[in-house]
Design a protein around this nucleic acid. Structure first.
Length: 832
RNA sequence: GCCGAAGUGGCGGAACUGGCAGACGCGCCGGAUUCAAAAUCCGGUGGGGUCAGACUCGUAUGGGUUCGAAUCCCAUCUUCGGCACCA
């Protein structure tokens, strides 16, 4: 056996062998316990990047570990195959169809994944751009339409001029397109929406049962932005209408001294009763409307407003209060109108100061003697307190007042309790080609009609000109557009927009369970077997987008009675980024490390081992070529150990060895002990904590221990022990370095795959120490150590400790105030 | 501005529940092997101090709780992430 590890000699061989033996096939209804581990599927860009290598390595270790633990594991992979890059490539190069481009990329990425030795069940592979798949995406859309969860509506929407399509709110980051970073514009368009807001509360409540990073739950919580308050109607005599406002502070209504409308508010026109200044008012409105969104919605922008000339009546006080229009009120949130309480809201306060509007304090801080006075306040007071200047309600505290006012106003029909959300419905129409067509037909007779289920999928036509013009390329595909109405059979036209690709990825984890089902997206039985996903792994950048949509879809699908559970991902590990020189790898920075080079140069096992060893999975990882070499060196060290001792290790039937009953000498005992200590640590690190870096370092320690044992006992090796420990070490290393361990496993005499072998069992008895080292502290400082019997009594331990020379020295002429004994660890003597 | 996470050797990181700070790896230094080198093996490696030890300082900074703090509490600084005129 050569004593140098040469990955090129066997990585491909084993990959083919595993494939041939369908080693990683997951069977539905296995007698074993089922476990579903899933990594977020990639967009088929054509090449794996380091982030992919990281996330798939993590998933693969979990999958392999769980299999060795005896679980029937579902570990699938697929392709988020619809999307703009394919279409843009077609536009740019002209001679390649997005379909071709996509499938070629899938092929090359799949090849790279196979070269990594990932243990997927490829029989379950899905691609969202496959008609077999998007048929069901369309089917879900129709189900939602039938259940009033999909609707078409005209409203101002986010438009990305570079992508030539609309975007969902979630896809706009700081007013820029999430994909291409272009400034987003507003357009008034009629578009399809999914009613995610219907599930807002459930999406919030569901967090409680999820084992997800807390910060991610918080991000989603902030995004949904639930706030409880009241809608209150303020009558306006001039126009004989009521202005509805939303407020979270009905308790401050006695302090509402004016009202403010958004310039976009529908009543604005009628309310301009100050005809003298009408031109000035209209100029102002137009100016604000034309303000860049970024500027308009920034808290730094100075608040500006103008009087309308109209007055509203405060329904609680009966006071007439002026109505203004201002740039700081947004039409998108609440009702587009607010009651301004300058004494207790900083924004209203700033505005009131500028325009000299009255400030009336109605909440008095509990801990202040002198009464708050609106005329001399320096800033708004928005903390807790009790009511003043509120007639018969004076003295109530804020919380009581909220309830009291809510009851009174509901009784009098002035207002009602209401909950508002920041979350908007999900805009899913896209004016682009490479996506799933929205399965809707427009008929002059019957109106909007969903396509019949039997007629799904609505196939994406091939022969289309892809140029991005702001209107879906499908508009020009006449064979596609012109169709018959499913209801009346008359001439009709198809919807030409396609669906947001986030719709495709909102249910792919369900299709894996039953990916060849022709009758349903998945069967109920398969869901019983596998759902929900036990462990999901993917990038934090999807914390809001994909993970919120997928949770929403799951809840809808549950309500269609296809699932019992409403949460798709029980556990989620958000893996960190791979950095180079402290920066995210990117072409523009020129710091990209190509995984295929690493795979060619060092092999898959080294690449996997390094990336898992360098950092805990949820933290960012700094790429280091020296670190890769270190990982390679370690694998070599394991290889060489076996190569050099192959005669002692080979063909020993480890299952027949009972080390507990054999008489081991001290060194042997120590090695055996270390083995079991390692088994315990690695098992826990991999299964509970998902800290692969410390699991690997524990295996490294064990290998170091094996080498020291060899050096110290050259003359008299215990071959049985050596074979035993070596074999268990290989088993623990198998999920991390699947190829090399498989090769070595066969070299030491096994005939079947190491990946079908059992995970080593931890024996508590073997891991126990006979002697332990106790740390001796004097006044909290470590002064000495003493080796004692592990089962020593507290009194005997104390006695022994006080006999130590060092302890004598430090306690001489001093009074021992206290002695603290921490069993098996430490004794702290406090002296004065 | 608000919310959240983090800050430990030259570097990546470990210390899981308050109990030996720096496991493991990288790098560096020394030794063995070699004609020599690479590779490999063995040993050392936080700072100060010393022949060596004793000792001493040390987990962003300042304070606190405790017999004992990287870990808990308060304040400050820095970095990263999210939200941001949300009524």
């Amino acid at each position: 056996m050569q004593n140098h590890y040469d990955f090129e000699k066997f990585e491909k061989k084993w990959q083919k062998d595993w494939d041939d033996k369908t080693l990683y096939k997951a069977k539905n209804k296995d007698e074993k316990d089922n476990y579903y581990v899933l990594e977020m599927f990639p967009y088929p860009s054509g090449k794996l990047h380091m982030g992919h290598v990281r996330v798939y390595s993590i998933g693969d270790v979990i999958a392999r570990f769980k299999r060795m633990e005896g679980f029937n594991v579902l570990h699938p992979m697929g392709w988020d195959a619809f999307g703009l890059p394919a279409e843009n490539a077609a536009i740019k190069h002209g001679n390649i169809h997005p379909r071709e481009w996509t499938w070629e990329n899938i092929e090359s990425m799949k090849e790279q994944m196979k070269a990594m030795g990932l243990s997927y069940d490829w029989d379950r592979e899905v691609a969202t751009a496959d008609p077999d798949y998007y048929k069901w995406t369309q089917w879900f859309f129709i189900k939602m339409y039938e259940n009033d969860l999909a609707y078409k509506k005209e409203q101002p929407v986010n438009w990305c001029p570079s992508c030539d399509t609309v975007l969902a709110n979630e896809q706009v980051v700081n007013n820029r397109c999430e994909r291409c970073d272009t400034l987003v514009e507003q357009k008034e368009l009629e578009q399809w929406f999914l009613k995610i807001t219907e599930y807002a509360d459930e999406l919030l409540e569901g967090h409680e049962e999820l084992d997800w990073p807390e910060r991610v739950k918080t991000m989603q919580k902030n995004w949904i932005g639930r706030s409880e308050g009241m809608s209150i109607n303020f009558p306006v005599q001039e126009i004989d209408k009521e202005l509805e406002v939303f407020t979270t502070r009905p308790d401050t209504i006695y302090g509402a001294t004016y009202m403010v409308l958004s310039p976009e508010h529908p009543y604005v026109d009628e309310l301009i009763t100050d005809k003298e200044n009408e031109d000035e008012i209209r100029d102002f409105i137009n100016r604000v409307k034309n303000q860049e969104d970024m500027e308009r919605t920034s808290p730094e922008t100075e608040k500006e407003g103008i009087y309308t000339g109209s007055y509203a009546t405060n329904p609680m006080t009966g006071e007439e209060i002026p109505i203004l229009i201002a740039n700081y009120v947004l039409m998108e949130y609440g009702t587009g109108a607010i009651m301004a309480v300058p004494a207790h809201d900083q924004r209203d306060f700033d505005f009131a100061k500028k325009y000299d509007l009255p400030i009336k304090a109605v909440i008095q801080p509990h801990d202040k003697k002198e009464k708050l006075d609106g005329s001399n306040m320096k800033e708004a007071y928005s903390e807790d307190g009790y009511l003043i200047n509120s007639e018969k309600y004076n003295g109530l505290n804020v919380e009581e007042a909220f309830d009291k006012f809510a009851n009174v106003m509901e009784e009098k029909n002035i207002g009602k309790r209401e909950t508002n959300y920041r979350l908007r419905d999900w805009l899913i129409s896209r004016q682009r080609y490479w996506g799933a067509p929205i399965p809707i037909v427009y008929c002059d007779q019957c109106g909007t009609v969903p396509v019949d289920e039997e007629d799904l999928p609505v196939l994406l036509p091939d022969d289309v000109e892809f140029s991005a013009t702001g209107i879906s390329p499908l508009a020009k595909a006449e064979d596609f557009v012109n169709t018959k109405c499913p209801k009346c059979g008359g001439d009709a036209k198809r919807e030409i927009d396609t669906m947001d690709t986030f719709v495709d990825s909102s249910w792919y984890f369900l299709r894996y369970m039953d990916s060849n089902n022709q009758k349903l997206p998945f069967s109920n039985e398969s869901a019983q077997d596998w759902f929900p996903v036990d462990q999901y792994i993917g990038g934090i950048e999807h914390a809001i987008l994909h993970l919120l949509y997928a949770r929403f879809f799951t809840k809808v699908i549950r309500d269609l009675d296809l699932l019992d559970e409403g949460e798709p991902f029980t556990k989620w590990l958000a893996q960190g980024m791979v950095l180079k020189d402290g920066d995210k790898m990117s072409k523009s920075k020129g710091n990209v490390v190509d995984p295929s080079r690493i795979l060619d140069e060092y092999g898959a096992d080294t690449a996997r081992l390094f990336i898992l060893f360098a950092s805990p999975p949820e933290k960012d990882l700094e790429w280091s070529e020296a670190g890769v070499e270190g990982a390679n060196r370690f694998l070599n060290r394991v290889w060489r150990f076996i190569a050099e001792n192959i005669d002692d290790i080979k063909d020993v039937d480890v299952s027949k060895i009972n080390l507990a009953q054999s008489n081991l000498n001290e060194d042997e005992k120590e090695l055996h002990r270390k083995l079991h200590e390692t088994i315990q640590k690695v098992t826990e690190d991999v299964s509970e904590r998902l800290n692969f870096n410390t699991a690997i370092s524990a295996i490294m320690e064990l290998v170091n221990e094996l080498y020291s044992y060899l050096v110290d006992n050259k003359k008299q090796l215990n071959e049985e022990l050596l074979a035993f420990v070596t074999e268990k070490t290989l088993l623990m290393l198998a999920p991390f370095a699947p190829h090399m361990t498989e090769e070595l496993w066969h070299k030491i005499g096994h005939k079947s795959s190491i990946h079908r072998a059992d995970w080593p069992e931890f024996e508590e008895e073997a891991a126990k120490k006979d002697e332990i080292t106790i740390v001796i502290q004097i006044n909290g400082k470590v002064r000495d150590r003493v080796d004692v019997d592990a089962n020593i009594s507290e009194d005997a331990l104390k006695e022994k400790v006080f006999k130590q020379d060092k302890v004598q020295k430090y306690t001489e002429d001093k009074e021992v105030a206290k002695t603290i004994v921490i069993p098996k660890k430490l004794v702290n003597i406090v002296v004065k």
